[in-house]
Amino acid sequence: MGTDADNVRMFRTGTHPCGYWADRQARDLVLDPHDPRLPQLYPMALDWGFRRSGDIVYRPSCVGCQACVAVRVPVAGFRPDRSQRRCLKRNGDVDARIVASVRTGEHLGLYRKYLAARHPGGGMDDHGAPEFEQFLIGSWNEGRFLELREHGSHRLLAVAVTDLVDGALSAVYTFYDPDDSERGLGTLAVLKQLEWAARDGRAHLYLGYWIAGHAKMDYKRRFQPLEGFNGRGWARLQA
């Protein structure tokens, strides 16, 4: 993993309930959260299938299960398919704006509304400002918020929390107004992140973990070409 990875400490967590399958237990491999080199190690960790949640950089390390596959889109090769083009057309009245990753009351209100609708009883229902800061912003990463707003009214429709690393963007989390679900705001957020990465000349957009057949995760396969990390390197995943 190179000299930057020399003496990197990693820990394996104890078992905890899986966030994707209610009947499974999960474990994670975690980089030492107190390592002062985390900002420098983070791009390399993404390339090795890790992900950030708050200040924690982790990778699933579950006994007997390899369902979670880290995925990324090679930006230069991406072309929206017919469904994605329809999503862009349907949202022609939406403005995208990149802003600092600073929480506002508007952001927090939309986040809480999204959690109440999308993850009721999932343990995140009572998230307030401290949890927002801890989970979405963190203390050491370079992040931005990609805001999606309705043109004219400037009503906030969605926020895509995005990390900037050398040569890539990483899609950390997206929350949106559940009253506008017909817009396909989750898909639109990824499309706008891909446009952003292309403008910046970045090679990849990391999309976190894809799980085949999972209702909330399988959509990532529609962004082609898509690469998955197989434990040794990245390989093309077929649509």
Rank of each mutant, 00 (worst) to 15 (best):
T3V: 15
T3G: 02
A5Y: 12
A5S: 13
V8H: 05
R12P: 04
R12K: 12
T13N: 05
H16D: 00
H16W: 03
W21F: 15
A22Y: 01
D28K: 07
L31P: 09
D32Y: 09
P33E: 11
P43I: 13
P43F: 12
L46F: 05
D47R: 15
G49P: 11
F50R: 04
R51L: 02
I56D: 02
P60N: 07
A67Q: 12
P74C: 07
A76E: 15
R82Q: 13
S83A: 15
R86F: 07
L88D: 09
R90G: 13
G92L: 11
V94I: 13
V94P: 04
D95R: 13
V99I: 12
A100W: 00
T104N: 02
G105Y: 06
G105K: 01
L110I: 03
L110G: 04
Y111T: 00
R112A: 03
A117W: 01
P120T: 04
H127R: 00
F135Q: 04
F135G: 01
G138R: 10
G138W: 08
W140L: 13
W140Y: 14
N141W: 03
G143L: 14
R149L: 05
H151R: 15
G152E: 09
L157V: 00
L157G: 03
L164G: 03
L169G: 05
V172P: 06
Y173Q: 02
T174S: 10
T174H: 01
P178R: 06
E182I: 11
E182A: 15
L185N: 01
V190Q: 03
L191F: 04
K192Q: 14
K192L: 07
A197R: 03
D200F: 06
I211G: 06
A212V: 10
A215K: 12
K216R: 15
M217T: 14
G233Q: 01
W234D: 00
